[in-house]
Computed example of a mutant assay.
Amino acid sequence: MIDTIIFDFGNIFINLDPKATETSFAQLGLNNWSNDLVELNHLYEFGKIDEYKFITGIQKHIPNADLVAIRQAWNAQVADFPLKRLEFLQFIKAKYKLFLLSNADQTHIDHFEHKEGISFSRDFYSCFEKTYFSFDIAMRKPDERVFQLILNNHNIDPKTTLFIDDTPENIEGAQKAGLKTWLLNPVKEDVTQLFDFLETLDD
């Protein structure tokens, strides 16, 4: 019997459109997301550098672009957050212990909060016992330790805990920690179909 659920954020609650960022950066003159930029992104998601160092790090590859334009391009991938998903969370929060676990950076989270508004963001966060962002805890999925951190901090039994994510590598990390998992396909599935999935889990 599942009594605890740990959710990813992107493509589970808020929709993501990476191609929008690719297109925006291409318009600024950046056509290749190099290994240097991958590493820079990881450092930012780990909270090891601040937004200014991240944005200026990208600017080195497109020196003619200003910092505001680069931030806007980076945030272009943050799309809509369907209201039905928030309403679903509010419906189930009395039945389950809920946690949010996301590989995220401060820029994207700030943009989400500004875009959706203070009231919506507050209502969303209030559904969870605790939110875990990689830039706050200096750990990222799929590292097994990040799942163990949540289990230990809240005295959670992994056998009664479900982790929901749209990335296979993250699912594998959760499985190593002993959690039940749902690899959600955002093209075909929606988190509001949770109860349908739980029925298959109990079979």
Rank of each mutant, 00 (worst) to 15 (best):
D105W: 01
A65W: 03
N32L: 06
W74T: 11
L194H: 05
F112T: 07
L98N: 13
Y96K: 14
E129Q: 07
A177C: 00
I118Q: 06
V191D: 01
D80G: 09
I156G: 05
T131D: 03
A138E: 15
L100K: 11
I92C: 14
I150K: 10
F91Q: 11
I70G: 02
V68H: 15
D123R: 08
A76Y: 07
F128N: 04
D196C: 05
K159H: 14
E51A: 08
K176G: 02
K159W: 08
I6M: 05
L37V: 07
D17V: 00
K97D: 11
L201K: 10
I150M: 12
P142W: 01
A65R: 05
F135D: 09
W182C: 08
E144C: 06
T192L: 04
K95H: 15
N32S: 07
P63Q: 14
K60F: 02
A174Q: 10
H42F: 05
K180H: 12
I2K: 13
F91A: 06
A94Q: 15
H114F: 11
I118F: 02
I164V: 14
F163H: 03
T181G: 01
K97T: 07
N32A: 07
I62M: 11
I12R: 08
Q59Y: 08
E22C: 06
R145L: 15
D190V: 00
V68Q: 15
Q90Y: 04
K48D: 13
P18F: 10
D3G: 12
K53I: 00
M1C: 13
E116I: 12
I49P: 01
K19T: 06
S121C: 02
N155V: 00
S24R: 12
D196G: 07
E87R: 11
N35S: 06
F112I: 13
L40K: 04
G173N: 08
K130R: 14
M139K: 15
T181D: 00
E116L: 14
N15Q: 09
C127N: 11
G47C: 14
T160Y: 03
A104E: 02
L16C: 01
K159I: 13
T4P: 01
E113W: 09
W33R: 08
G117L: 02
L101M: 14
L67H: 13
L201W: 03
W33C: 12
E22D: 12
E113H: 11
T181E: 01
F88M: 13
D3H: 13
T21A: 14
E169S: 07
L162Y: 03
E144D: 04
K84R: 15
L194Q: 07
I58S: 02
T160V: 05
I171S: 01
N31A: 10
L28C: 02
T21I: 07
T56M: 09
L194K: 06
L100C: 13
I171N: 01
S34N: 07
C127T: 09
F88S: 04
